[in-house]
């Protein structure tokens, strides 16, 4: 196993097949989000009842978030978590198919973000697979600064981003971490121009040389520290930004913290550990308040790359 595969256990590939996705897209067009929600309840119930392999994927997280739960309660939590993910995916598709007006998105900390962008050293938005980060990113238009998004999509992934439905092209500049030098030069270039760079702080990208161990929900997991190193090299502040579904048709995007990484921290990965740990702590606080809007369905804590 090479170091990249060992470091990265997640996949962006959807559980559903292409026709299942198309069926939901059609349902949204014909009946709106509510029709799609209605079908979703039954499909999630099917998966939870007859596909224990899928249910198991939520248990890595749930076991740590709710350590005292018994099997029945755990089943219910798994159902809730999967249902919330389904709703978020429907909402995301609905924004692309029906238009952004189907959802309202509020941004808490807008002034703070504008001040950080105003510093002129670029801004790293560190997000996570919680809530609906893609829909929430629509709220970033108020920054009036180009937004670059570090994102890796698997070959053959049938799940679409919201902008792919409307055919208008991505409102963000996509940086592929599989590109030249993992996209690091592109990321630094964007920040040096004073632009916004959005990264996911909870997923491993690249080799295990770029990872540090942090404590999250009681156990150790590996996270990538490249973003903190880039922040140190460029002087760009890091704003930790989480989204959450607050109602049937509303989302909130909130600045949960600002991380400033000093310059000249050098090559030692340990120097970046406190900043990665701070992010993990903020993410943990999010899961306390929004336990079923955390969408990492793999064993984030398995540092050996098995399973």
């Amino acid at each position: 196993m090479d170091s990249e595969k060992k470091g990265r256990q997640w996949s962006s590939k959807s559980v559903g097949t292409a026709w299942q996705h198309r069926f939901f897209y059609l349902l949204i067009r014909l009946g709106g989000r509510w029709a799609a929600y209605l079908v979703l309840y039954f499909i999630i119930f099917y998966y939870m009842l007859l596909r224990p392999d899928q249910r198991k994927k939520s248990e890595y997280y749930l076991r740590r978030r709710f350590p005292d739960s018994g099997p029945v309660r755990r089943w219910w939590q798994s159902y809730r978590m999967s249902l919330e993910l389904g709703k978020v995916l429907i909402d995301r598709a609905a924004v692309g198919i029906l238009g952004p007006e189907v959802l309202s998105v509020t941004l808490q900390g807008r002034e703070e973000l504008l001040e950080l962008v105003g510093e002129g050293r670029g801004l790293i938005l560190m997000m996570s697979h919680v809530g609906c980060w893609q829909v929430a990113m629509a709220a970033l238009r108020c920054l009036e600064t180009p937004v670059n998004l570090l994102i890796q999509q698997e070959e053959g992934d049938v799940d679409r981003h919201f902008f792919e439905h409307s055919g208008t092209g991505s409102p963000f500049h996509i940086i592929d971490p599989r590109g030249y030098l993992g996209g690091t030069l592109e990321m630094m270039g964007a920040l040096k121009k004073g632009e916004v760079l959005s990264v996911m702080g909870d997923r491993m990208l690249g080799s295990d040389r770029s990872s540090v161990p942090v404590r999250f929900l009681g156990d150790e997991m590996q996270v990538n520290f490249s973003s903190y190193k880039i922040a140190s090299a460029t002087g760009a502040p890091i704003a930790v930004l989480f989204s959450r579904k607050t109602g049937p048709s509303s989302y909130e995007l909130q600045v949960s913290g600002v991380i400033r990484v000093p310059a000249d921290l050098g090559r030692s990965k340990e120097a970046y550990l406190p900043y990665a740990q701070l992010f993990a702590r903020l993410l943990e606080e999010y899961t306390v308040k929004n336990p079923f809007q955390f969408f990492n369905f793999y064993d984030m804590w398995n540092n050996d790359g098995e399973g």
Binding site: L181, T184, K192, G206, S210
Partner: peptide, 23 residues
Amino acid sequence: DSLDAVELVVLIQKHFGIEIQDM
């Protein structure tokens, strides 16, 4: 590797006073 690339950008600025703006 990519982490060294970040470091190299910093080192070039430190030793030669050159900032690589255009990536």
